[in-house]
Structure formats: structure tokens, C-alpha cells
Lab assay of single mutants.
Amino acid sequence: MKTQEELTEIVRDHFSDMGEAATLYVQVYESSLESLVGGVIFEDGRHYTFVYENEDLVYE
């Protein structure tokens, strides 16, 4: 099982292909040891929320 830090790095790496991230945040109260819930805000103003669970990243 991966730590939240490892899950955060996986998510950060995925979003790095989409541009320069200004902020990546984790909603600790919705996350667990198995999943990471949060969002990313890019330098150009785009904002996505995400759920990373079971090696699957879903974002909108």
C-alpha cells in the first residue's frame, strides 16, 4: 500500500503533462489510505478536481 505522499506524487506526475501546476491540494477529510481526493490549479487558471483510487485517476 502506498503512502499519501506517494499517491500525491503519482497524481502530480500525471498532471505535469497538462502544464505548470500552481497548486495541488488534497482534501484530507475525504481521502484515505486507499484513495486521494483533491484538486489541481494550473498557472493558466484551469482547475480540476480528482479522485485517485486503485491506480485509477478520475478528474473533471
Results as ranks from 00 to 15, higher is better:
Y59G: 02
L36Y: 06
E60C: 14
G38T: 02
Y59P: 02
E9K: 14
E60N: 07
E5L: 08
V40M: 02
V51W: 11
D13G: 13
E43P: 12
V37D: 00
V58H: 10
M18W: 11
F50R: 00
F15V: 02
E43V: 12
I10H: 04
V51K: 09
V58C: 13
V11F: 06
D17F: 14
S35V: 14
G38H: 03
E6K: 07
G45I: 07
Q4A: 08
V28P: 01
V11Q: 02
Y25Q: 04
H47D: 02
T3D: 03
R46G: 03
G19L: 08
D44W: 13
D56V: 15
L7H: 02
M18Y: 08
E30P: 04
Y48P: 01
E55H: 12
E34T: 09
T3S: 09
S32M: 08
E60R: 08
F15D: 01
L33N: 12
T23K: 09
D44S: 02
N54M: 07
D56Y: 14
D56Q: 15
V51G: 01
F50N: 00
V11Y: 03
E34W: 08
V58E: 05
D13P: 03
H47W: 10
V11T: 02
E9A: 13
H14Q: 05
A21W: 13
T49Y: 11
L24V: 12
L57Q: 02
M1F: 11
F42I: 01
T8R: 08
G39S: 10
N54D: 05
Y25F: 05
Y59W: 13
I41F: 09
I10Q: 04
E30W: 13
L7E: 02
Q27R: 05
I10W: 07
S31M: 11
M18R: 06
F50K: 00
V26T: 01
L36M: 06
T8D: 04
D17I: 13
H47F: 08
Y29M: 05
L33Y: 09
E6H: 06
R12N: 04
E9W: 07
E5C: 14
V40H: 00
V37W: 09
Y29E: 03
E34I: 08
V28N: 08
E6L: 07
Y29H: 04
N54A: 07
R46N: 02
E20Y: 13
E55K: 11
Q27T: 15
G45K: 01
T49I: 12
F42K: 00
E43Y: 08
K2S: 05
F42S: 00
R12S: 04
L7P: 01
G38D: 01
K2A: 04
Y25V: 07
N54S: 06
S16W: 10
H47T: 04
Y29S: 04
E30T: 09
M1A: 10
S31N: 06
S31E: 11
V26H: 00
E20R: 12
G19F: 10
D44A: 05
R12G: 03
T3K: 04
Q27L: 15
L24T: 00
I10T: 03
V11C: 13
D13M: 15
E20Q: 11
Y25W: 06
S35K: 15
L33V: 09
Y52V: 04
T3R: 06
R46E: 02
L36Q: 01
E53F: 13
Q27H: 11
M1D: 04
D44T: 04
A22H: 12
V28A: 11
G39K: 08
L33Q: 09
L33W: 08
V11H: 01
T8M: 15
G38L: 13
R46W: 11
S16N: 08
E60G: 06
F50E: 01
V11S: 04
E60W: 14
I41C: 13
E43T: 13
E9F: 07
S31I: 12
Y48E: 00
Q4P: 06
E5M: 09
S32N: 09
E30R: 05
N54P: 03
F15R: 02
V51Y: 08
D56G: 12
L36P: 00
V40T: 01
E55A: 11
G19V: 06
F50A: 00
E43K: 13
I41Q: 02
Y59F: 12
F15K: 01
G19H: 06
Y59T: 04
E53W: 12
I41R: 03
G38V: 12
F42M: 06
